[in-house]
């Protein structure tokens, strides 16, 4: 049995007037250590799918199993990274990165060691007493990465974490997140609408249809691309053909046929 299993998952939102099915018929299994990207047109339920896996939402039908256990509610086993850093402006960096640990009641120096180590690795040790408002966008998203990893989660959910950054910072941060995740042997799911980013970072790419989101196609990234840093993948000779293939799949049929 796979590390993460989604069996016939469906999510429908109800309101007084109507109901909207965000995703349906989602059948997906992810092995430990895999890096999966989910792409699709906007409004296709990518973020909903991530919220379901995190336990913030419950599926209307079907089930999601992490390590053979049904996900009932959010747990520190799963890390979540949002489109923006959402660091708490009233806490300094130290308190921000240990937020998860404090919430879990882990407040000893031993518990916090990993968080401080990560901060050092990402070159932000000197910012530990600063407040988020004193940091640049890229630095803040790096702090958010440390915050997510501080509780040593098994599964990482990345909800377009680079979309609010400028292009240069984005490319640098892709490399950093990629290598940090590989180094710590984490399983990760990245939601993005950037095809290039999906190819550069992941092992497998899941393409969703328009709402209600279903799995449309799956692309496996060639083995030698998987090993490379995202920045190097973008310049690889095999990058463009794959990009073109996915691009064509994503284009809606113009002539309606």
């Amino acid at each position: 049995m796979a590390f993460l299993e989604l069996n016939q998952v469906e999510k429908t939102f109800f309101s007084l007037e109507t109901w909207t099915t965000a995703v349906e018929d989602i059948e997906l299994s992810i092995e430990e250590g895999e890096f999966i990207s989910i792409i699709g047109p906007s409004g296709c339920g990518k973020t909903t799918l991530l919220s379901l896996i995190s336990g913030l939402l419950h599926p209307t039908s079907g089930e999601i199993l992490l390590d053979k256990e049904i996900i009932e509610r959010p747990t520190p086993e799963t890390g979540y990274m949002l489109q923006q850093d959402y660091l708490f402006p009233w806490l300094n960096i130290k308190d921000n990165i240990t937020l998860g640990l404090t919430t879990m009641g882990k407040t000893t120096d031993v518990d916090r060691q990993l968080a401080f180590q990560l901060l050092e690795t990402l070159g932000l040790s000197d910012k530990i007493d600063h407040f988020p408002s004193q940091l640049s966008g890229g630095m803040r998203q790096r702090v958010a990465l440390v915050r997510m990893l501080s509780t040593d989660p098994k599964l990482l959910l990345l909800d377009e974490p680079f979309s609010a950054l400028d292009y240069q910072t984005k490319l640098k941060l892709e490399d950093l997140v990629f290598s940090t995740i590989k180094e710590h042997h984490k399983t990760a799911i990245l939601v993005t609408h950037d095809i290039g980013e999906a190819i550069a970072m992941s092992d497998r790419i899941i393409l969703l249809t328009e709402r209600p989101g279903r799995i449309n196609k799956e692309f496996v990234v060639p083995l030698h691309l998987k090993e490379k840093l995202p920045f190097d993948v973008r310049t690889d000779i095999e990058f463009n053909p794959l990009f073109q293939t996915i691009w064509k799949e994503m284009e809606p049929d113009e002539d309606g046929s």
């Binding site: 995190s54 913030l56 509610r73 959010p74 747990t75 520190p76 799963t78 890390g79 979540y80 949002l82 923006q84 959402y86 708490f88 009233w90 806490l91 937020l99 998860g100 404090t102 919430t103 879990m104 915050r147 509780t151």
Partner: peptide, 24 residues
């Protein structure tokens, strides 16, 4: 989204209130 951050760490309603809603 601030609530999402703390909930993703498995925070209780009480923790959510005192660590996020109140200071925010």
């Amino acid at each position: 989204n601030y609530l999402k951050v703390i909930k993703s760490f498995g925070a209780s309603k009480k923790q959510t209130f005192f660590r996020v809603v109140f200071p925010a």
